[in-house]
Design a protein around this nucleic acid. Structure first.
Lengths: 358, 358
DNA sequence: CTGAAAGCGCTTACAG
DNA sequence: CTGAAAGCGCTTACAG
């Protein structure tokens, strides 16, 4: 990687037969080395590299063996230059929780494992004016192979349009179907909301409170609506006065709980649409002298590290984020032929913050 | 990025003077376009690009103006191929908390802002056998410009040796000075431990407990030793029976607190070497019917999101991680001439989990 | 201070 | 099924 081999350029028979080669393998093996050793043109090596069918089987085998033996790896930079497309996959995100981002990165890397692709990250602020241009620069400058978009940027149609315009592949992870199956992976937040409702109803709760996320997040809407829908199905109407619009923040959870717990009758269970707000509910409840789950059952959403570290531990919803990242990336890398929509359903994780009402 | 311009290759006067050019700027502007428009060779444009002093001032200005006007950006792929080094900075990490990783990424990107560098991530497991080879492959395959190493991988000398061997730049973020100043940024975990001790002593605590991290983390050792040292300076000896070796996990925090709180006399304050363990202390204390901070003061370390979301909110230590990431990256990108060791000291954030003993 | 030639390690377009 | 030539967009080494 540092010094340029001086032996590379020495004159030699231009159409060499396989031959013994000096072992001073300074510098990385290149396509030329393999071609020379195999006694074929580099174009043929290139064909093998790119799995072209236009190679005789025994030629392919010979070249493959040589590549293995020399532990040859094609230079992504050079391929990228010729392909006009790099071997980089971008992850574009706005501001989910840290754990979500990290799990997603692990998932993407799981799918990239063994390939010559690497993961490059691009946080951004979807509320700032120039963010789409920022993503465009990110994509075009490094000629990214494609990008994974996670909520909330995944929900922005203008962003997807821009990517289509510049011919960049993408996969959106979102809670509703807002693109073709080849371009998205759906997380069934709504179904998780339903599951929540059914669970609380089955415990015997009738007086329920809901703290939603901000409406600009589609996921927030889905979670809340799913919850409401689930209750309706079980014959319980969610009183609008028992719905508080939070902001996915701890403080909004505190405020929401203070509001809901001051109502008469007091809710016996609260579903907060993320764990952070659920932690806020803990604070408000404990400060009011209410015990969890004795006086109040609490359910969160995300299964963040926080959930198992609160006391009592928090009943919450878990999305297998890493798995989602892996599948989304596989979709991104696959030939655009797939038709079935990939969808993943988050599920309830019951811990110690929920029980039947008194 | 998608289609190849057909106009590029048309024959023209080889030594062109500045001239009007068809505005059908299909495809990206290249160094050839700029050279032609400026009436200079592409080598001269290249010199301007690389800030070579060997360019006449007016030539430089003319070229610069043209680059701006055409919003020319050199292709990192092509430069990388010629330079034998990409425009990618790698972040190598083992398993810190998600928030730490994400903040670090933000910091690195702060420093990369406006450059043509991008950030590529590489999580790994420093306990697995082949992890150093994994990093080697990561670095050599994409010919990374350099890497940032964060604890715990930053503490591994074998990894640093490997990087030196293959000629890859690196900056290690670590709590003790284990490399040359140009290769590291020190976080003064020890001083934070001292600050902790002084704070608790100043509140009047005399009976103190310590839950350390695992010894294979240098940071854990520094935090614990700093705490002990700080107490000693204030004339308090830390009884070894009041030191529990945790594992930086929630469960070990619970176990540690259960142990410490069963001692007689009971400690009136516990310093847990990360927030996760501090959350474990909460659980153990609350389960034993002890109130925080009434019966027990608790201090954590990291200022993770958890810290402000526990109730009562957790007094802890904050390292400006994003800032650290930014500075480490600036060091990585700078010419290797710097001599002074960069060091950053984490500081105490007082919240509601600490007060004078009863 | 400036440039023509050759090269980085691959692929595309064409020809056979 | 295979290859020679030209090219991707830059830089190095050399010459002036």
């Amino acid at each position: 990687m540092t010094s340029k081999p001086t032996s590379r350029k020495k004159p030699r028979a231009s159409r060499a037969v396989p031959m013994v080669v000096p072992t001073e393998v300074i510098g990385k093996t290149t396509i030329n080395d393999i071609a020379r050793l195999a006694g074929v043109s580099k174009k043929t090596v290139s064909r093998v590299l790119n799995n072209s069918p236009l190679v005789r089987e025994d030629t392919r085998e010979r070249v493959r063996a040589l590549m293995q033996q020399r532990s040859y790896e094609p230079d992504p930079q050079a391929r990228g230059l010729a392909f006009r497309r790099s071997f980089l996959v971008g992850l574009v995100f706005d501001n989910p929780t840290a754990q979500y981002i990290v799990n997603m990165q692990y998932g993407v890397l799981d799918a990239l494992q063994g390939s010559s692709f690497e993961l490059v990250v691009h946080p951004c602020d979807s509320r700032s004016a120039g963010y789409i241009d920022g993503v465009r620069r990110f994509v075009t400058q490094q000629k990214l192979f494609g990008v994974i978009l996670i909520p909330r940027v995944s929900e922005d149609q203008a962003l997807a349009d821009m990517l289509t315009e510049i011919g960049c592949r993408y996969v959106r992870i979102a809670s509703i179907r807002l693109d073709q199956p080849g371009h998205m992976l759906q997380t069934q937040d709504r179904l998780a909301g339903v599951e929540d409702a059914h669970y609380l109803e089955s415990l015997g709760h009738k007086q329920l409170g809901l703290i939603t996320g901000p409406k600009r997040y589609r996921s927030a809407i889905e979670r809340g609506e799913g919850f409401s829908e689930g209750l309706t199905r079980r014959g319980i109407a969610l009183d609008p006065r028992y719905v508080y619009e939070g902001g996915y923040t701890f403080e909004s959870g505190v405020a929401g709980a203070e509001h809901l717990l001051s109502l008469n009758p007091r809710p016996t269970a609260i579903f907060a649409c993320n764990d952070e707000m659920a932690a806020g509910v803990y604070k408000a409840a404990l400060r009011m002298g209410l015990s969890i789950p004795g006086d109040l059952s609490v359910i969160g959403y995300d299964d963040s590290p926080l959930a198992s570290q609160l006391w009592p531990s928090l009943t919450t919803i878990r999305l297998p984020v890493r798995d989602v990242g892996r599948q989304a990336t596989q979709l991104l890398l696959s030939e655009p032929t797939q038709t079935a929509l990939i969808s993943v359903t988050p599920h309830l994780v019951v811990r110690d913050s929920s029980q039947p009402p008194r």
